[in-house]
């Protein structure tokens, strides 16, 4: 792996006590590229994200940004390094207004000394403009986020990450709860973010969503990496098979170990 990678993961492992959540995962992502992380439920996707987002630290392995080794002590720390995460549960406060959510944790202030207050007019204007850039007309930024549709909320989150100068954008299952049309909208946002020069890590269990937008694919299964491929190295069918094969294996194991059988089609809930 070359020096030029924006973010590079080398042999990352994470243990919770004696449980192996992630074992020896390596991949990389460059500016202006989308790396898709695919895997079924329990594959270790959540652990993977949380490690990158600074929620917890890896047990083994190194993370390098622009070739320099880094550790993320907290979500704030990861943010300061330019890694923004859009969680599946959206990390939004439903009862709060769009503009407050947009700026939550980094509100623009004015004032002097210890007496600072939020520059509301500026915040509302920026929120409105940034949303307009994404093609969404938020007429009233005082509207609570809880009243937006799922796709709109994802868009707010992505716009927020972009505005705050994220270099790496991690999207956790952004399409899993959405309908066909809304998913399309979100995929479009991903492409736009990529074209704007962001490095995007797109976590999903849907190869059909991943393949059209991805430049690189990392496949996880039960905490292990099934390989990291560039787009030209793998076709969508192979991708699907890799994932499905893992799932069948998993289902078989379950069958042997316990009485019940779990079909991989049923596993639509996230891990």
């Amino acid at each position: 792996m070359a020096e030029s990678h924006l973010l590079e993961l080398d042999d990352i492992s994470k243990y919770y006590g004696n449980i192996i959540a992630l074992k020896g995962v390596s991949t990389s992502v460059n500016a202006g590229e989308v790396t898709c992380v695919l895997g079924d439920n329990g594959a270790g996707k959540s652990t993977f994200i949380k490690t990158l987002a600074g929620v917890h630290q890896q047990s083994e392995g190194t993370i390098r940004m622009n070739g320099e080794e880094v550790t993320f002590d907290s979500p704030r720390d990861a943010l300061d390094h330019g890694i923004a995460t859009v969680y599946q549960d959206l990390a939004m406060v439903p009862l709060m207004s769009v503009w407050r959510n947009f700026f939550l944790g980094a509100e623009p202030t004015k004032g002097f000394g210890p007496f600072t207050w939020i520059d509301k007019a500026k915040a509302k204007q920026i929120a409105k403009d940034e949303m307009a850039k994404m093609g969404i007309d938020i007429r009233d930024t005082e509207q609570p986020v809880g009243t937006l549709s799922g796709g709109e909320r994802q868009s707010v989150a992505i716009a927020r990450a972009g505005y705050f100068g994220a270099k790496v954008l991690i999207l956790d299952e952004p399409t899993s709860a959405l309908g066909v049309k809304q998913s399309g909208v979100v995929l479009k946002r991903i492409v736009e973010a990529r074209n704007a020069g962001l490095a995007v890590i797109f976590i999903t269990h849907n190869p059909r969503h991943a393949y059209p937008v991805g430049n690189r694919f990392l496949i996880l299964n039960r905490g292990h990496s099934m390989g990291s491929f560039a787009k030209h190295e793998i076709s969508i069918d192979e991708l699907t098979q890799l994932m499905a094969g893992g799932a069948e294996l998993q289902a078989l194991e379950h069958e042997l170990e316990a009485a019940g059988t779990i079909s991989h089609d049923d596993l639509t809930t996230p891990d």
Partner: peptide
């Protein structure tokens, strides 16, 4: 703002750096 955030969805608030 952070008061509303930690009361409304503490995890979310924490994740965005509150």
């Amino acid at each position: 703002s952070w008061t509303f955030a930690v009361g409304g969805n503490k995890e979310a608030a924490r994740q965005v750096g509150v």
